[in-house]
Amino acid sequence: MQRYINTALDSGWLWLLARLCLMVIFISSGLAKLLDVEGGMTEMRAAGLRPDWLFTLASAAVLLIGAALILLNRWVWLGAGMLSVFLILTIAIVHTFWTMSAPRMQISLYFALEHISVIGGLWVTAIASRLRQRLADVCEES
């Protein structure tokens, strides 16, 4: 049984599937901002970001470019960094639970904690990508 698990964990298909699962939220959010620009601009106005059209397009670009880098397994560290900064800024600008009262505070806190967990997942992905590349390089040299 362990041999099958190890084979799956070493496989390229599971590596791609794991990255895809992590990127679903970023891809869907980025596409939503492009397909419903007015909705995206409403989000930006609600967060106090002006000009709303610029922040909507910039957000969509960061989300989709960062996700693409990770999915393509190219410059994963850069994609993970872009998306991590996006999430940190989202906490600082939108999910400011420390300025709110209950029950809004609790919901914002949960979103902030979720974002922090996803940031950890992004960093783990960047680390795993680097280690997989180093392993592939060593195997090629042998």
Rank of each mutant, 00 (worst) to 15 (best):
A68M: 07
W77H: 07
T99F: 03
H95T: 13
W98D: 04
A92Y: 02
W75N: 04
A46W: 03
L72S: 07
W75S: 01
L71D: 01
Y110E: 11
I88Q: 00
L64T: 12
G66V: 15
I107K: 08
I70S: 05
L109D: 02
I88M: 10
R45M: 10
S59L: 10
I107H: 06
T90Y: 05
T96L: 06
L69D: 06
L109K: 01
R74L: 14
I70R: 04
A58T: 14
F55Q: 06
L49C: 01
T99N: 09
N73C: 03
L109E: 07
T90S: 13
V62P: 01
T96E: 05
M82Q: 02
I107F: 05
R104F: 14
L72H: 04
I70M: 09
N73L: 02
L83E: 03
A60W: 06
M82H: 02
F55V: 15
M82R: 03
L63N: 04
S59M: 11
S108C: 07
W75L: 06
T56F: 07
I93G: 02
L78I: 15
A102M: 08
G81Q: 11
R45T: 10
L63I: 13
T42Y: 00
G79P: 04
V94S: 06
F86D: 08
G66L: 13
R45S: 07
L87Q: 08
G48W: 04
L54I: 14
P103Y: 05
L87G: 05
F86V: 13
S108N: 12
I88F: 11
A46T: 09
A67G: 06
L89V: 15
G48R: 03
L87T: 10
A67D: 06
Y110T: 09
P103C: 10
G66R: 05
S59V: 11
F97H: 13
P51W: 15
L109T: 04
T96F: 03
L64N: 04
R104Y: 14
Q106K: 09
R50F: 15
T90C: 05
Y110V: 13
L49K: 01
I70F: 06
A68H: 02
L69M: 14
R74I: 13
I65D: 03
S108T: 08
R104G: 14
A102V: 07
Q106W: 11
A46I: 07
R45D: 04
S84F: 01
A60S: 15
E43I: 06
T96K: 11
V62L: 08
V94W: 00
A92M: 12
L78P: 01
M44L: 06
M100E: 10
V94I: 15
D52K: 01
V94K: 05
R50C: 05
R104V: 15
R74A: 11
T42N: 00
I107E: 08
V62C: 07
F55P: 03
P103S: 12
S84A: 10
A92N: 04
L49G: 00
